[in-house]
Design a protein around this nucleic acid. Structure first.
Ligand SMILES: [Mn+2]
Ligand SMILES: [Mn+2]
Ligand SMILES: [Zn+2]
Ligand SMILES: [Zn+2]
Lengths: 135, 135
DNA sequence: CTTCAAATTGAAATGATTACAATTTGACAA
DNA sequence: TTGTCAAATTGTAATCATTTCAATTTGAAG
């Protein structure tokens, strides 16, 4: 509650009820939701919410470094308020996007072949541990 | 010419003029073109070409392992007939997609945290060597 | 309380991709 | 060579995520 208000104020982002709700949702649901999933869920408690506001807020939070976009699924973007560098797996069985914490040396930003690297995205496609029916 | 005909026959893909042209274009232009770029370019010499055919052919070639999709640019897919595993950089200055040949241990498919990995995609965003104006 | 730039809203536009039905074509056999 | 037919091609229309836009509302400052 106060936590999100504080985050917005620290970043100098104007505080609105919609931004607080979206920020809270992302912070309490680490499921890498799409814009539509955020919209559907929050509209239950805030029926006046507009999908445009979801997109606007996502962009604002992204510009201030409070969330990252996950494009492992090419047909829609997903969003992640966990901003420490990590990779993602899209499970073709359950559709979930799962965090992959691997020690890839390129997880941290650096130079590769003379190019300047600003962002690193590691995307895997496969079948998650749970769907494999493992022990 | 004969090269592409041979490739299609070996894979058991029915040979058509459109498939030969698209395959040749991808093999001679390693620029990671979008479906629209392939369409625009080939339509110059084959005015009857349909964009649907470009999409259909891309899917067919992909299913037979003759091309990969590059989704470093979230708003449109790009295509690559170089099928050995490698990563990609999207330059925010010139818009080009450049191959990144790095020794990431996850370039080859393997298991990570109990999940089964079928595809590995490494996407970088930044500014390419040429646009940096470096020596 | 007033003010006003910024945020929100809903509707319309955009743009990549897919679905579909009619037409054409490639491979094969007569 | 010709006939056949499943598969490929084509153009149009539909889909769907995302963006644009103008009107309305709201948060923060004074
Ligand atoms: Mn994540
Ligand atoms: Mn490539
Ligand atoms: Zn799964
Ligand atoms: Zn460049």
């Amino acid at each position: 509650m106060e936590k999100y208000l504080k985050i917005l104020k620290e970043k100098g982002i104007k505080v609105t009820a919609q931004r607080l709700e979206i920020l809270r949702f992302l912070d309490t649901h680490h499921t890498h939701p799409s814009a539509d999933e955020i919209y559907i869920e929050l509209k239950k408690r805030s029926p006046a919410l507009s999908k445009t506001t979801v997109y606007n807020t996502i962009q604002s939070l992204k510009e201030h470094g409070l969330l990252n976009t996950v494009n492992v699924d090419s047909h829609e973007s997903r969003f992640d308020s966990v901003i420490n560098p990590h990779h993602h797996l899209l499970c073709s069985a359950c559709g979930n996007v799962i965090d992959i914490e691997i020690e890839c040396p390129y997880t941290r930003k650096m130079l590769a072949g003379g190019h300047r690297i600003d962002e690193v995205h590691g995307y895997f496609k496969g079948v998650c541990k749970d769907c494999l029916g493992g022990e």
